[in-house]
Write a protein that binds this DNA or RNA. Structure first.
Length: 288
DNA sequence: AAAAGCCCCTGGACGC
DNA sequence: TGCGTCCAGGGGCTTT
């Protein structure tokens, strides 16, 4: 999936074409994605106008003038495609493909098509005033790009945790929005082994403090770089407007097993290991 | 309570 | 061209 930077990019793309616009009608092509759609999904959305689009971790929140918010999670393979009116593809309106599960037909003629081959994504409706009360949102940890994250907060959260740093970064209940790619990339930038115990950063020593500071900075930098690059894109995930992202070409370790480390003065070879059933890529030479 | 494992699903890459 | 196998950006639920 789409991790935080890609979701942020999708939000910005949707904001451009949806905010202030009215949803004329909705096509829902199946009863469920990962979970069933909420009752009266199509009729609840029809006729509403989009007020605001925001992001929480990897969730997209679309506030409507009905007082409801459309919550979208892209799972592993969800993506939005924007079909503008006048685009000659209007002739294929009846079929956007076998994985086009939801289509928001905007009053201005734009179709917003949600594709999701693996169907790990989902949509729900909630009251706009109580985003944090939603069962999927209330357990989320802090935003990595917000002011809440600093080395003291990280040290406190990591204190006496026996799991690996990699598993810790992937835990959405601690810091929300980091996925497999950016966990690997952030640890590389921080020079920390993905196998190191999280508790090592929660000690009161000077080195523990420095490590936590480095990791906080690495997380911020890698996410911001990826957002600046328009979100990375690989395989079936595309930016909302269909253009490819470029950050994927900047990965230091992810997907680079057997290739040389790009680190200055480092002759290491990128290694792939499995942690908690997910691939981890790192440089054994410069990540300690 | 914390951590690890299993599973949902489809499709693409690769080996034979 | 056709298998079979492995792998994939997530995360909920179950088991240890």
């Amino acid at each position: 999936m789409p991790e935080l930077p890609e979701v942020e990019t999708v939000c910005r793309g949707l904001d451009r074409v949806m905010t202030g616009q009215t949803i004329a009608r909705v096509t829902q092509n199946r009863p469920n994605l990962r979970f069933p759609f909420p009752p009266n999904f199509e009729t609840s959305l029809a006729g509403t106008t989009v007020k605001r689009i925001s992001r929480r971790a990897k969730y997209i929140l679309i506030d409507l003038d009905s007082g409801q918010t459309l919550l979208v999670h892209l799972g592993m393979s969800g993506r939005f495609e924007i079909i503008e009116p006048g685009n000659n593809s209007t002739s294929k309106t009846l079929s956007y493909g076998k994985h086009a599960h939801v289509i928001l037909h905007m009053k201005n003629g734009t179709d917003i098509v949600y594709h999701d081959p693996r169907r790990f994504g989902f949509m729900d409706l909630l009251a706009s005033g109580s985003h944090d009360a939603h069962p999927r949102l209330k357990t989320l940890g802090i935003e990595p790009l917000g002011n809440e994250l600093n080395s003291d907060v990280m040290a406190q959260a990591f204190r006496s945790k026996q799991r690996s740093l990699k598993a810790m970064l992937m835990d959405q209940k601690i810091i929300a929005g980091i996925g497999n790619i950016y966990a690997c990339e952030a640890l590389y930038r921080a020079g920390l082994s993905p196998r190191r115990a999280a508790a090592d950063l929660g000690l009161s020593s000077r080195t523990a403090h420095t490590r936590a500071e480095n990791l906080v900075l690495a997380i911020r930098n890698v996410l911001n770089d990826a957002i600046a690059a328009g979100g990375s894109t690989l395989r079936d995930h595309r930016q909302v407007d269909g253009d490819l992202g470029y950050f994927q070409h900047s990965f230091s370790v992810y997907g680079r097993e057997g290739k040389p480390c790009h680190g200055k003065d480092c002759s290491g070879i990128i290694k792939r290991i499995v942690q908690n059933n997910r691939s981890t890529f790192f440089c054994p030479s410069c990540q300690k």
